Every structure is written in C-alpha cells, then in structure tokens.
Simulated assay, not measured.
Amino acid sequence: MQRLKIDPTASSFFVDLNADTGIFNFQGESRPENAPSFFEPIIAWLITYRNTIEKDKDSHHLKVIFKLDYFNSTSTKYIVDIAKLLKSIDDLPNVNLATEWFYKSIDEDIRDSGNELIDWTGLKIKLIPYD
C-alpha cells in the first residue's frame, strides 16, 4: 500500500502513514482552515489500510505516534475519528497495535486529551511525558 506523507504547514501537522514499516506518525500543531480537506485523505487511507489487512492472514505489528503540540476543536473531532479507526484496526485478530501519546510534561491539556481519547474510543494509549 502506498505511503501517505503530508508535510507540516503553519496550520497543519506532519503525517507519515507507512504500511511497509508499520509506523504511523502524527506530529505538530493542527488548526487547518479547511479541516475536511486535510483530514479526509488520512481517514480514507486508514479505511483502505484496514480493509486491506482485514483480508490478509499475515500478522501486522503497528506503532502509532501522536506528538501534538496543539489542536483546535475542529481537529479534535477528526483526531477522535482517527483514533476510532485505529481501534477498529487494533480489533482485527492479525494486528498488534501500540499507540503512544507524547505530551510536554507541563501541558495538562494535551495529556488530558490523550486520556479522553482512551475513554471515548477504547484505544489503548501509552501516555508519555517529555520536556
């Protein structure tokens, strides 16, 4: 499956979804002016990925990294949608998914957002503070 890589802009975060390495990376800030045009390709890629590996008998070990410094309320809705899709991928019998949520140790809001994602989606997320 073709890799999806989106370079960061002043208003959107870095995305690197690499099926070959099994590493999905989301980093930076998110306040895009047109949130659907930014997030819909990510959602579509994850749906296609899930549908592809669902038919596959091979084991898949995936690592998801969120290192978000800021995201607005519109982005929150899409981040929840992404987390729900990741949960549906994790629920497949041939998938082992590890999700890491990095937050600055002084940023309680981002930490709390990680906890809310766990509550809202059931996705297992390891919360990791950094300086």
Rank of each mutant, 00 (worst) to 15 (best):
Ser12Gly: 08
Lys87Leu: 02
Ala19Cys: 05
Ile106Ser: 15
Asp107Ser: 06
Ser11Val: 09
Phe71Glu: 01
Tyr70His: 01
Ser113Gly: 10
Ile47Gly: 00
Asn96Gly: 01
Glu100Met: 04
Val95Cys: 06
Phe26Met: 11
Trp120Phe: 13
Lys57Arg: 10
Val64Gly: 11
Pro41Ser: 11
Met1Gly: 14
Pro93Asn: 15
Leu117Pro: 04
Trp120Lys: 15
Phe66Pro: 12
Ser113Asn: 05
Ile42Gly: 11
Trp45Asn: 01
Leu92Gln: 02
Pro32Ile: 05
Ser113Asp: 09
Phe14Thr: 06
Thr52Ala: 14
Phe102Trp: 15
Pro32Asn: 04
Ile79Met: 11
Ile89Asp: 00
Ser88Phe: 00
Asn96Glu: 14
Ala98Arg: 12
Phe13Asn: 13
Ser59Tyr: 09
Ile65Thr: 15
Ala98Phe: 07
Phe71Gly: 04
Asp81Trp: 00
Lys77Asn: 13
Ile23Glu: 14
Lys67Cys: 10
Ala83Asn: 02
Ser11Lys: 08
Ile89Ser: 01
Ile23Ser: 08
Thr48Ser: 14
Asp20His: 10
Pro93Cys: 09
Thr76Ala: 15
Val64Thr: 14
Leu17Pro: 08
Val64Arg: 08
Ser11His: 13
Ile82His: 02
Ser11Pro: 00
Asn94Lys: 11
Lys5Ala: 13
Ile106Gly: 02
Ser88Gly: 00
Arg50His: 07
Ile82Pro: 04
Thr121Tyr: 02
Asp7His: 13
Lys55Met: 10
Lys57Gly: 00
Ile53Ala: 03
Leu86Thr: 01
Glu33Asn: 07
Ile43Tyr: 08
Thr99Gln: 04
Gly28Glu: 07
Leu97Cys: 03
Thr74Gln: 06
Phe38Met: 07
Ile6Cys: 09
Ala98Met: 11
Phe24Gly: 06
Thr21Leu: 09
Leu62Val: 05
Ile79Asp: 08
Ser11Phe: 14
Leu46Lys: 07
Thr121Met: 03
Ile89Gln: 05
Ser37Tyr: 12
Asn72Trp: 08
Gly114Arg: 03
Thr48Trp: 00
Ile125His: 07
His61Gln: 15
Leu4Arg: 11
Asp90Phe: 01
Asn72Ile: 08
Asn72Glu: 08
Phe14Trp: 09
Pro129Met: 11
Arg50Trp: 03
Thr121Lys: 05
Asp109Met: 10
Asn18Trp: 02
Tyr130Trp: 14
Asn94Glu: 05
Ser75Thr: 10
Tyr49Cys: 01
Gly122Pro: 06
Phe24Tyr: 15
Ser12Pro: 03
Asp81Ser: 14
Glu100Ile: 06
Pro41Thr: 11
Thr99Arg: 04
Pro93Ala: 06
Leu123Gly: 07
Gly28Asp: 09
Ile89Met: 06
Glu40Tyr: 03
Asn115Ala: 08
Pro8Ile: 01
Ile53Pro: 05
Glu40Gly: 01
Ser59Thr: 12
Tyr130Asn: 11
Lys77Met: 05
Pro36Ile: 12
Ala83Tyr: 01
Gln27Cys: 03
Asp69His: 12
Tyr49Met: 08
Asp131Met: 13
Ala35Leu: 04
Asp7Cys: 03
Glu108Gln: 13
